[in-house]
């Protein structure tokens, strides 16, 4: 069980199917995550943080 991730794993395990798999679901999920991150950041930085009292200016 140990050797099968080293370079001399059986050739049919690694070749061929690399190009066939397009993780479109992953791209969708991570796109949603990206959108959430950007919106949350804009809210917390520009509205929550910069909108508070006693902003340190010096």
């Amino acid at each position: 069980m140990g050797r099968n991730e080293t370079a001399h794993a059986p050739a049919d395990d690694v070749s061929g199917d690399t190009e066939e798999f397009d993780p479109i679901g992953t791209l969708t999920l991570i796109g949603i995550y990206f959108t959430i991150l950007v919106l949350s950041w804009v809210y917390i930085y520009y509205i929550e943080f910069l909108g508070r009292d006693l902003v340190v200016v010096g």
């Binding site: 069980m1 099968n4 991730e5 080293t6 370079a7 794993a9 395990d13 690694v14 199917d17 690399t18």
Partner: peptide, 13 residues
């Protein structure tokens, strides 16, 4: 109970 771990789609080569 033995389990093996398969190699990666895009391998170390």
């Amino acid at each position: 109970l033995a389990e093996t771990l398969p190699p990666a789609l895009s391998g170390p080569d």
